[in-house]
Design a protein around this nucleic acid. Structure first.
Lengths: 249, 249
DNA sequence: ACTTATTTGTTCGTATGTATG
DNA sequence: ACATACATACGAACAAATAAG
């Protein structure tokens, strides 16, 4: 029977055939959609929600897991569960710089270098950079974030001859722009951008702190010097729940 | 029970409600989309694929027939099955026209009007078209395809005052450009484009002929007259496996 | 620097309802 | 009617991260 409890606060019909956790998830979703809990705000604690609905904490967790799986909220151990904010508008233009874009949006840009190494350019990279296949290139793998929330995981390649110690400089400054500046390239611009989508696998999920199965924007870009010579190319996987690419014509 | 087999090599969840051949077709499609098998390359033999998945060759044939039907691969008796073209490159520019883009790629553009009706503009549409909320707008839902393969399912809105019988004209001509021409708008250009990603639900899957869970590109755009007045706005869901958006600066 | 309280995450166990063959 | 499998729901305890004093 299981319902010899005091009384749930939600005066709603039993809704036959709908599980408890589902009803709680719907209630929370409605509260979020209605703006009762604004973007960025913290949800009540699990125990509090459980008490309010008169259910076990596990049931609340199941409901929250559902919302988290859909990217509506994000749980952070030790601090709480937060409503995901609106997507960060990420303009794609000739002058596309990660840190500038994030900064303009009033958030703090972060970049963590995951790995770096020297490797010969494979066919695809060589074609993008217009260099002979096999030319040594520096490869930088990193995760970029705004206010500590990971936005994208990706790789940037640049010819090793241009910037032999790119990794070191990036680690010190946290900026690709600075790496290029140190290599004597004071300015550059976005030449081409190709966009597709994918679904996060376990690796993406771990890097971007989201659940597997969530959508990703896959962005492949080439940057050139002011006189049109390719200087870097990147492939990035963006959490689509957190970013929105914008093209203005 | 159906799983008294040895063990499929693909360690993927059962994906309830999806037939075996469909899953194999998706796996092959993904491998092709990811470039594991490049355009023009030959697929492994049917018997080899069957062995790898631990299924009967007939099941593989059914999967390949599906891909062939969608134009992704081409089977040639006696020599093998070959991958056709890759993703359709879809440039986003001031002059973005579906039929032109598909035509330039050497494929035949198709558009099927799924539904149309007159409705008051909600907040989001009103903002995009810069009209008062509640203004009557014509809403056209359609599925667009190339060589019979669905590429996108979406909706276009335009102020009813501009083109009262938009649906009729679209049905006759199959072109939004013609609809606008009939309304006295000889030219228009893309003003803004916003791109995010999503995961296909059952409805998307049915409309775009793909399986639920596959990635989609969600494109929201506004077109304006040459003097900058918003004239149409659209939201489209593109099968990311078949399309690649391109931005050139 | 340290402690304490709070909050989510994880792992046991138990019981029950439901669908399947 | 029965056995089995699975998802749901509850309970208790502890681990781990975070925030506050």
């Amino acid at each position: 029977m299981a319902r010899a409890r005091e009384k749930p606060v939600t005066a709603r019909p039993p809704a036959a055939g709908v599980t408890l956790w589902r009803r709680i998830a719907d209630d929370l979703e409605r509260a979020i959609a209605a703006g009762d809990i604004a973007a960025g705000e913290k949800l009540p604690g699990e125990t509090e929600i459980a008490a309010r609905f008169g259910v076990n904490r596990h049931t609340v967790r199941r409901a929250i897991a559902e919302l988290a799986g859909r990217g509506l909220v994000r749980a952070a151990r030790g601090s709480g569960t937060f409503v995901e904010g609106g997507r960060l508008a990420y303009p794609i233009s000739a002058r596309t710089r990660f840190s500038e874009i994030v900064g303009t949006a009033g958030r703090e840009a972060g970049g963590r270098l995951v790995a770096s190494r020297l490797e010969p350019a494979d066919g695809a990279i060589a074609r993008r950079l217009k260099i002979p296949k096999g030319t040594p290139v520096v490869r930088l793998d990193f995760v970029r974030s705004a206010n500590g929330v990971p936005l994208s995981a990706g790789t940037t390649w640049l010819p090793a001859a241009r910037a032999p110690d790119a990794a070191k400089i990036y680690e010190a400054t946290g900026s690709i722009t600075r790496v290029l500046a140190a290599a004597g390239i004071s300015d550059y611009r976005r030449y081409s951008t190709r966009v597709t989508a994918a679904v996060a696998d376990a690796i993406d999920a771990a890097r971007l702190d989201l659940s597997p199965g969530r959508p990703l924007l896959v962005v492949e870009s080439v940057d050139v010097t002011p006189d049109g010579k390719p200087i870097t190319t990147s492939t990035g996987r963006f959490a689509a729940d957190r970013v929105e690419l914008m093209v203005e014509n």
